[in-house]
Design a protein around this nucleic acid. Structure first.
Lengths: 246, 246
DNA sequence: GAGTGGTCTAGACCACTGC
DNA sequence: CAGTGGTCTAGACCACTCG
């Protein structure tokens, strides 16, 4: 039997949540990498000295949070952005006319800088710490729809260059996961409408001053540590941002 | 024991999903109204001739979908928009500066019309069928931030007038639920950036042509039947649309 | 067939609410 | 105190995958 916190303790949490915490810890420690199988429920149950049902409930929650993926008959896997089903997990853009063309990422620039006060605050680093800034286009049917400016902590993403970005034909997060060991698990987006500045207008082939959707995203990895800040400007003539409320 | 579909049948679904379907059906039939307790898990188990655990799993899913609300020690309740915790369930707007002032809904107009082809398609009614159109403002700290135009099927919302709207100090959905027996359980929003037309600009106190966030929402009730279509124009100078991705 | 996750059951006990 | 949902267990069996 595992140690159960007394019920009247202020830090009380049910057993299955403690198990969840232990599995989470193992994930952070990279005991099993993205895309790999984790031990079976029975193995984990014996490892943690609890019943299979308790492990099951812990895994249920983690699967609901997209941290793990269950596949009947095969096992439970660490979620990965390299899984085709997760490529566009965070992309809410859909064509207005219907259908669904392929998105293509076109890296434009990648340079080093020092974090200003805002980037520092958002990324949880000190102002003046090194950061890497990436600018890229997102195209649908070879037409530019989004221009992104992405701010990354230099310490974590050391070695990231335009060439690396251009080589990788998959999603950015899949690259981050494979090359830098950083897995994004959650993000917050703040949307506003703004007028296109000159450079964005040129990149997106729209008139200067036309309305654009501004999407500021902060992405988090394990432990709710922010590891990416990006601002996207979306041209919403042919595509729109689709959100499900429930 | 309840009837279990044979495993090799194409319509196979686990017992707990069938129970879920039966509870859902009872909700649609208004066996228990919004805000009311449903029978205890043990009662439902004996009613459906299954174990408590199976009822439990059905209710778990429905609670995750915001159809039911569990309260330990008290019972399980039908979710309601009249519950203060659900007032702003579908409103993603937050002040950029932080804090959180009270929102206020200001009904402006309410008139009858016939559905055009688009409204008919979205609402699942025939073009020419009666609809009701509501225009209203959403204010924060007495400053207009959103102007909404709301399209409702006339048949369901017969009796809705500007006076009725003005009387109700609560959320629209809470009114719809209480007066018309229509509970919104899910919605889709499509966001774009557009330039302010003259009337919207005046209502929102912004210059004509300035960028606004256009939010088109279709709301659904039980059985995924669409029962509301609305378009909101958001001024995003002081507020932004916040979205959690996971 | 062996191993995985998925379902279902039954029973014990805990935590919370309200009388 | 009785009644509710919440947790934990143990065991049986089903469904899926792969060798």
């Amino acid at each position: 039997m595992m140690q159960q916190t007394p019920a009247d303790s202020p830090t009380f949490s049910p057993l299955y949540r403690q198990i969840k915490g232990l599995i989470l810890q193992a994930l952070e420690n990279r005991e099993w990498g993205p895309g790999e199988v984790i031990p079976s429920e029975i193995e984990l149950a014996s490892r943690f000295n609890v019943s299979q049902g308790t492990v099951r409930k812990a895994i249920d929650e983690m699967a609901a949070e997209n941290l793990l993926v269950r596949r009947q008959g095969k096992g439970t896997f660490v979620a990965s952005h390299s899984d085709p089903r997760a490529f566009y997990r965070f992309l809410r853009l859909v064509p207005i006319a219907g259908g669904s063309e392929q998105a293509r990422s076109v890296p434009l620039e990648c340079w080093r800088a020092k974090a200003g006060p805002e980037a520092g605050r958002v990324l949880g680093i000190k102002a003046g710490d090194p950061i890497i800034i990436v600018r890229r286009l997102l195209e649908f049917s070879n037409k530019p729809v989004v221009v992104d400016e992405i701010y990354l902590p230099g310490e974590i993403f050391a070695g990231l260059t335009l060439e690396v970005l251009k080589e990788s034909q998959v999603s950015l997060y899949s690259l981050f996961e494979a090359k830098f060991g950083v897995r994004m698990i959650r993000a917050e987006e703040r949307l506003r409408a703004i007028a296109a500045d000159r450079t964005s207008a040129e990149l997106l082939h729209v008139p200067e001053g036309s309305p654009l959707l501004s999407v500021e995203r902060t992405s988090f990895t394990y432990g709710d540590r922010p590891v990416e800040w990006r601002r996207g400007l979306y041209s919403t003539e042919t595509h729109c941002y689709l959100n499900e409320l429930s």
